[in-house]
Nucleic acid binder design. Sequence first.
DNA 1: GAAAGATTGTTGTTGACGACAACAATTGCC
DNA 2: GGCAATTGTTGTCGTCAACAACAATCTTTC
Lengths: 168, 168
Amino acid sequence: MPPSAARADTRHSPRKRAGNGAAPRDVGDDVGLDALVGHAGYAVRRFQIWIFQDFIKTLRDVDIRPTQYSVLTVIGANPGLSQMAVAKRLGIERARLVHLLDSLEQRKLVKRIKSKEDRRSHALHLTAQGETALEKFKRLAAEHERHVEAKIGKENRAQLLRILSGFT
Amino acid sequence: MPPSAARADTRHSPRKRAGNGAAPRDVGDDVGLDALVGHAGYAVRRFQIWIFQDFIKTLRDVDIRPTQYSVLTVIGANPGLSQMAVAKRLGIERARLVHLLDSLEQRKLVKRIKSKEDRRSHALHLTAQGETALEKFKRLAAEHERHVEAKIGKENRAQLLRILSGFT
DNA sequence: GAAAGATTGTTGTTGACGACAACAATTGCC
DNA sequence: GGCAATTGTTGTCGTCAACAACAATCTTTC
């Protein structure tokens, strides 16, 4: 990752060394991003890649990825939710949630209980093992969050959460 | 997307209606996120999904996705770059860039020129058609950026760019 | 109460994407 | 001159979003 490479380059005309066209220039890191700086999407994408990689690395021992963590957290806080409700709340495809739950159920962290009221749906619950495991996951996730603070600054992280609070 | 659903829920104990376990609760949208609020990664992920969807929608007529736009922009601003240099600068796999360039070259937007100096590498350039097309792409991308401003606020967007400037 | 329509979980496909591994051609190093 | 490294390419694997189709089950409507 290029944490602090050359930025602030908004020229529209090609740069030095444009010449004819048979000379590949890549020595050094003075490659301008042009219009890319100033695009929120680009910065957010790069940041998201970094943040996910750190999350995965920090929770490597317990083998939990961000999406799995979000599913477990929501079920833990709202026992009895249906799959559709979880999918809608987290903004993931219900088709994808099926596989996620298959995996989590195999690992004895979650159980699907057939509902008596609506026999189409399943009521989702954490197992006892899942409860204690989630506690550990949360501690590790908090550690990851401290990495984020160290990376962008405590105050900036708080500000970022405030700005994006409408998307959660 | 749940733009302004119930937030600020940091309880650790299960919520109302926990009961035994055969009742699926998903009526209404009072599903708490628990520890998920307070995780920058979750908010950033949701925001990134929104922002990419808007970008794709805004540039639908010209059929350009964010990654393609970033590649074209960097080549346009740095003619003659090698594939390796572009990949490194944008943080994408060089293997993936191959397919991206295949597509862009088929559409006559980019051309690979065999380098005389280093016969392993290609010097990347925009075609004349690619230059004019990129102009249009940039106008549409600017329109997308205004959507972002409308969504999170002009000042917040600027602040966000400032916070994440280290990742570009 | 029965038919028509909607919802839930499931399976499958498609395509974008990141991560790796292997390979031939070429370059740089010693 | 020979060996390691680099560049572009091809391929595989797993994650992920977006759809489409389906059976079982509600819900609505007549």
